[in-house]
Design a protein around this nucleic acid. Structure first.
Length: 720
DNA sequence: CTCATTAGATTTTTT
DNA sequence: ATCTAATGAG
């Protein structure tokens, strides 16, 4: 297969053609990781090492799974259906649907997304009469998910104090409630299938013998449960390949466990570690900056990227007065690039937190630069879509209380909180679903008439809509539930109507792909599972050439010719939160590493001395990450607009000299740069008291953080 | 029951 | 600044 392996470098080749031995592949940013993974699968099949049905490949996102599938289509003669390629959750779902009885689930179980889960937890807490002041439902949600991700059921969690005991009690009740209603949350998909396989020896053996080659993408992002789950598929004759980059692990905050990489070596691969260090993306200076920065992190598996592309331009650094100046500078630079015939879609603007996009958007809008913001609400998370899906879910399973509550009074039918409370009490007392209670309501008082009308509506929809095909079924429900009418009456309802239309379209697509029959419960259930597992693309409206705005997290896996990284200030990036967390700085540094390695040719870093945050003005100092990039790789940009400076200076004039003007006996004020004998340089955040009692709050660079200093004692020196 | 006002909180995010 | 969730008046 010469064409298949053509152009691979020696390390890539070694990974692709590794004999039947498990291995860990340390794949740096831009080192051709996805190519290696897909080529390996194609090579294994083409050379008869395995039949397609013996392949089990796991990714994190649907996007990655799709890309893998798409690339494989080009490499294989035919796309075999019996390869298992998908996300952790997608594959777990497949497993549970196939063996639902053995897993103790109804055949048409529904999947709760995070917000569904939260409302389910709130209901559980209400039923248990838990004080939501003392127990934040979101904390409870985090507790339950963390427990599940550690493989622990409620009965297995340790509860030392009354608080923990209460949490455990809620956890147990929540799981019972889910079981009763026939729904599972994301973590449950994994935990339940893990239990299924670990308890059922013959089933486990069957899969272990079937899947000869197991491949895992983005391994550094796996959590403990996911790794344990993977190990169940590894029999004595299974070959595993885990591909990942510990330096790009930026999801520890949601449970990613980098230690899995070390454990993988211990469990499977022994000495089989292959490093992919040749970078095909960035130019030398950018790569050197990334290498220097990440080398400050302890406990790395170790890896240094290199390239044979030239050094390229230095990393540009710009210091702005405030966030507005930063934004307008950005607009200028983008315009300049545009004038040089660069496409806007090749330029990305990255930031640490979503809130930062607002100011940037203002300026971009004013400057008439088209842009697209990634992130935010996804298609299947929109309220109108969730309402529509809730109606559909009730068709499949009327006992789904979550869905019933969502739509019983939407559009308004005169069923208020009081009525719902009564229904819930009755349901709780009889241990039945709300639907069962509703059905037995007499049509007496007005609220009861409302309930009866709702029962009629759902019953009628079931009879009328299910015989139709999927898209027609959805359309029918939108029309007859009153959802369409509701949004037609809304002043800005057009967008929502369009989205609902888009849902019918999604149904049509699914219908065409999965066999065109009248809508069966089965087909509808599968469609709904897809909707939960695949929240939908962020924003698909391509077309116009636009600047790309997104968080660094969202940029992972992407690359751009030019990257602007904004808001490089202590407290923002690295974030305030990270400073107080163990290993926090390391994760932020990896985030910086990811940001830098997104750039192919040009990298601009900017920061602002003053910034509006949460409606307050905050003073900041340059992020430590700036100085962690070696000086010889950096080039400071001087502001062009200030006090009519002679424009003769080229844009890349090195470091603006600090005018060391001797400040008069300082009237200390916020924003002032200062120097302390022990703590080094910093910036004044706040001033309080007067005379002998004068105190100032200073945020220092480096490890010292923010401190209040009594000016009667502290020797503080003002810098210009 | 519905609408309006107000207090409170705000890294990062996939499934 | 802006969003959400939880209260209180009509």
């Amino acid at each position: 297969m010469p064409t298949l392996l053509e152009g691979l470098n020696p390390q890539q080749l070694a990974a692709v053609t590794l004999p039947a031995q498990s291995a860990l592949i340390l794949a740096g940013a831009g080192s051709g990781k996805t190519r290696v993974l897909t080529t390996r699968i194609a090579w294994l099949i083409a050379n008869g090492h395995v039949s397609p049905s013996g392949i089990f490949a796991v990714t994190f996102t649907n996007k990655a799974a799709k890309e893998m599938l798409a690339r494989l289509t080009g490499m294989l003669p035919a796309m075999p259906r019996d390869m298992w390629i998908g996300t952790f959750h997608g594959l777990a779902n497949r497993l549970l649907r196939t063996h639902h009885a053995a897993a103790g689930l109804p055949g048409l179980f529904q999947i709760l997304d995070s917000s569904d889960q939260l409302s389910a937890i709130k209901r559980t807490m209400k039923a248990l009469n838990v004080d939501t002041e003392r127990f934040d439902p979101r904390k409870v949600q985090a507790f339950i998910n963390q427990s599940k991700e550690n493989g622990l059921r409620a009965s297995q969690t340790e509860a030392w104090d009354p608080y923990q005991r209460k949490l455990t009690e809620i956890y147990a009740a929540y799981d019972e409630q889910c079981q009763r209603e026939g729904v599972v949350d994301f973590a449950e998909l994994l935990l339940r299938s893990h239990e299924l396989l670990s308890r059922n020896d013959s089933l486990r053996q069957h899969y272990q013998e079937r899947f000869r080659y197991v491949l895992i993408d983005e391994f550094q992002d796996t959590n403990r449960l996911q790794y344990r789950w993977l190990k169940l598929f590894a029999g004595p004759d299974t070959t595993l390949m885990a591909v990942g980059d510990d330096d790009q692990s930026i999801y520890a905050f949601r449970g990613a466990h980098t230690g899995n990489m070390q454990e993988f070596q211990r469990d499977f691969s022994g000495n089989h570690l292959i490093r992919l260090e040749q970078n095909y993306r960035s130019q030398g200076n950018i790569l050197d900056a990334a290498n220097a920065l990440i080398s400050r992190n302890p406990e790395r598996l170790g890896k240094e990227l290199w390239t044979d592309a030239g050094h390229g331009e230095p990393v540009m650094v710009f210091r702005a007065e405030d966030d507005r100046a930063e934004a307008s500078w950005l607009c200028q630079q983008v315009r300049r690039l545009q004038d040089d015939n660069h496409r806007l879609s090749d330029i990305a603007v990255l930031y640490r937190a979503n809130a930062q996009s607002r100011e940037l958007e203002h300026s971009l809008f004013a400057a008439g630069i088209p842009y697209r913001v990634y992130g935010g609400l996804r298609f299947f998370e929109r309220q109108e879509i969730k309402h529509a899906l809730a109606y559909l879910r009730l068709l499949v399973n009327p006992d789904d209380d979550n869905s019933l509550i969502r739509v019983i009074n939407f559009p308004a039918r005169g069923i208020g909180a009081r009525t719902l409370e009564q229904l819930t009490e009755t349901a709780l007392a009889g241990q039945v679903s709300l639907w069962q209670v509703c059905r037995q309501q007499p049509a007496g008082k007005s609220a009861e008439r409302g309930v009866a009308a709702f029962v009629n509506l759902i019953s009628r929809l079931r009879e009328e809509a299910l015989p139709l095909n999927l898209p027609e079924c959805i359309a029918h429900i939108l029309e007859h539930s009153g959802l369409n009418q509701f949004y037609r009456n809304e002043t800005d309802g057009q967008d929502r109507l369009d989205n609902l239309d888009e849902l019918v379209n999604a149904g049509r697509l699914f219908y065409q792909e999965t066999g065109m029959n009248a809508t069966s419960d089965q087909q509808l259930a599968e469609f709904l599972a897809l909707a939960s597992l695949e929240a939908g693309h962020h924003q698909a409206n391509a077309g116009e050439d636009a600047l790309q705005l997104m968080t660094i997290h969202a940029a992972k896996g992407l690359e751009f010719e030019t990257v602007f990284l904004t808001g490089l200030e202590e407290g923002l990036f690295p974030s305030e939160h990270a400073l107080s967390e163990e290993r926090g700085i390391e994760e932020e540094r990896r985030l910086m590493y990811v940001a830098i390695t997104r750039a192919r040719k040009r990298l601009y870093l900017s920061w602002a001395g003053k910034r509006m945050l949460h409606g307050r003005e905050r003073w900041g100092i340059a992020s430590r990450f700036l100085t962690e990039i070696p000086e010889e790789l950096r080039s400071e940009i001087r502001p062009a607009t200030q006090r009519s400076m002679p424009r003769a200076t080229p844009a890349t004039t090195p470091v603006t000299a600090l005018r060391a003007a001797p400040t008069p006996a300082a009237p200390w004020r916020s924003g002032m740069n200062v120097k302390h004998a022990k703590f080094g340089t910093g910036v004044i955040l706040d001033v309080a008291g007067m005379g002998n009692d004068l105190r100032v709050q200073v945020r220092f660079a480096g490890e010292h953080g923010t401190k209040w200093l009594a000016m009667a004692y502290a020797r503080l020196e003002a810098l210009a």
